[in-house]
């Protein structure tokens, strides 16, 4: 766990310095006072305050939350929480129960993640939560990349559009990103809610892949990069081709 020591005229000053150095909010750090500090007399003999600050973004709260859920589900496993890319990654390892926790196309994992996020939010842990079981997400990502590339080849050969299976927002993003560099195909999102998916279409002859779309950005257009989980604003997007950056 990352930890720094700082000095200041007061404990408060030392604390602020340390938090700035760690780049965290106060509630996401543990502060240990090493030396209270004293003013001294006439500016002489004063001692500065010293504190140690350790990053501890209540990952313990998250870990405990998931451990309790697993226990109540009757599943034995270990839980690790790590902060990466501004998200709390909760990695679960079970003995033989991974499949059950993942579910079909990751449905159970997604449900778990949603519930844990809601619970965390109510416990005032506001960071994004990503739950994974046995490295499933990385495997799924590589599977989706392969599938997207294979589908693109088929689309190029046939000249006809083709659609991926329904995908989660993060999964759709993987498809868009994978095929973005390919000048011969474009991708766009169709469908609503759980059925949202990505269509791979042949790029029209001579069409510029990107910039031509930008100019006509109306209210019904958006790029995949915005396609985080904002379902509420999704209505009216069906069938529209979205620009791909």
């Amino acid at each position: 766990m990352k930890s720094v020591e700082e000095e200041g005229r007061t404990v408060e000053e030392a604390k602020q310095k340390a938090l700035a150095r760690l780049d965290v909010e106060e509630e996401d750090a543990e502060i240990e006072v090493l030396e209270e500090g004293s003013r001294g007399v006439f500016g002489l003999g004063g001692r500065s305050a010293r504190i140690r600050a350790t990053v501890a973004p209540r990952t313990g709260v998250l870990g405990g939350m998931v451990e309790r859920l697993l226990e109540l589900m009757g599943i034995q496993g270990s839980v690790e929480v790590e902060l990466r890319d501004e998200a709390a990654h909760i990695d679960i390892e079970t003995s033989g129960m991974d499949g059950l926790l993942i579910g079909k196309s990751g449905a159970t994992l997604q449900a778990l993640q949603h519930i844990v996020s809601r619970m965390a939010y109510r416990q005032d842990v506001k960071s994004r939560v990503v739950v994974d079981v046995g490295g499933y997400r990385a495997r799924r990502a590589s599977f989706l990349r392969k599938k997207a590339l294979a589908l693109a080849e088929r689309v190029k050969a046939s000249g006809k559009e083709a659609m991926m299976e329904p995908l989660q927002p993060a999964e759709r993003r993987i498809v868009h990103i994978t095929l973005n560099p390919d000048p011969d195909v474009k991708t766009y999102t169709v469908g609503e809610g759980a059925f949202r998916s990505v269509v791979v279409a042949p790029q029209a002859e001579g069409a510029e892949k990107d910039e031509t779309d930008e100019g006509e950005s109306g209210p019904h257009r958006r790029t995949w990069s915005e396609a985080s989980d904002k379902r509420a604003s999704d209505t009216g997007h069906e069938g529209g081709g979205f620009g791909v950056r």
């Binding site: 859920l69 109540l72 589900m73 009757g74 599943i75 129960m97 059950l100 926790l101 579910g103 449905a107 159970t108 997604q110 449900a111 778990l112 949603h114 519930i115 809601r118």
Partner: peptide, 16 residues
């Protein structure tokens, strides 16, 4: 979404 998630978790736990 939350109701659906709770149901999915309950189904998994029942399966177990």
């Amino acid at each position: 979404r939350t109701a659906k998630s709770i149901r999915t978790i309950v189904t998994a736990a029942a399966m177990k």
